[in-house]
Design a protein around this nucleic acid. Structure first.
Lengths: 164, 164
DNA sequence: TATTGTTATACTCTATAACTATA
DNA sequence: TATAGTTATAGAGTATAACAATA
């Protein structure tokens, strides 16, 4: 279907839409993609992506947890956790043990190497993030982090946050 | 490969990792998903998703622009714009005209209905976003938006932002 | 030759259903 | 019967290559 020819509408020079660029979601997405890109670059040399780094971190800090718990913590489906845990195990960053009391359940543990990789990667991700938002000073970064934390905090934590 | 059984590591109650929850990217993603979910819910009754609403808005505010310009504005590939524009055209929210001076080029124009739908949807998305971040007061929302805008602003705009 | 819109395709992410082994 | 891990699969989102029409 070809419509009336709008040649009187000159080819647009700068494309923009106030109705979009004023939206919080639009700006959250753009900032997220920038920061995530920086994190991905920092993680690539370690053979990690953001998901696998996050999974590794959660395992390091919660030794013995089960894949199903990991899935819940990462807000992912159990089925999609499998390949991520597989990759971490193949890279010898974690081990898959079995709970003795419930033999259905696995107990994920970071290896020594896994802990070392996590610590280094975490420092480099933090540095990459800082570089990506270097246009903000320290106070501004802290303010941003505090505001974001409150958006995603459970309702039960909101009251505590208000009362400082 | 089954490893040593870590039964001494009790099943974890609260799963968390400071190395992750302190990261800006992690919190940006969580906030983004919350706000985007709210926007999706607000758009569903209009038969729109966030991408198609954004495309419609850009077309409304930049009449006559070409799909390739739309692709650039949305940071998407030309090939992936096609189906989005198809859907907007089928819904009679936009028309695909042809430029008379360059017959390769299409000129996208919103219909009257397209403009009306965009305006209503934009208001409802804004309201849905506001509800999703209702734990922040007006000043805090403005601060958040200003900080996010600076993260994604081109470097050329950073100096201007600093000088207020 | 280069560009616009288009198709086909592939790869990733995410979500659902169903299987197995255990409980 | 219910749950944990797994597999297969389907749907989005995103990226590349190649083609026809046009410049």
């Amino acid at each position: 279907m070809t419509a009336a020819l709008p040649d009187h509408a000159p080819t647009v020079a700068t494309v923009d839409s106030d109705a979009v660029s004023a939206l919080l979601g639009y700006n959250l997405k753009r900032s997220y993609l920038i920061v995530r890109g920086a994190a991905d670059e920092a993680l690539a040399p370690h053979g990690l992506r953001v998901v696998s780094f996050t999974a590794l971190s959660v395992i390091v800090d919660n030794p013995g947890l089960a894949p199903s718990q990991l899935a819940e913590a990462l807000a992912m489906e159990r089925s999609n956790i499998v390949l991520i845990v597989d990759a971490l195990e193949t890279a010898e960053l974690i081990t898959r043990g079995r709970s003795r009391t419930d033999r259905r359940r696995q107990a994920l543990m970071a290896t020594v190497r896994g802990r070392r990789v996590r610590d280094r990667a975490a420092a480099e991700v933090a540095a990459a993030e800082a570089a990506a938002v270097s246009m903000l000073d320290t106070d501004e970064k802290n303010t941003l982090l505090a505001l974001l934390t409150r958006i995603s905090a459970p309702p039960s934590a909101q009251k505590a946050a208000r009362e400082g």
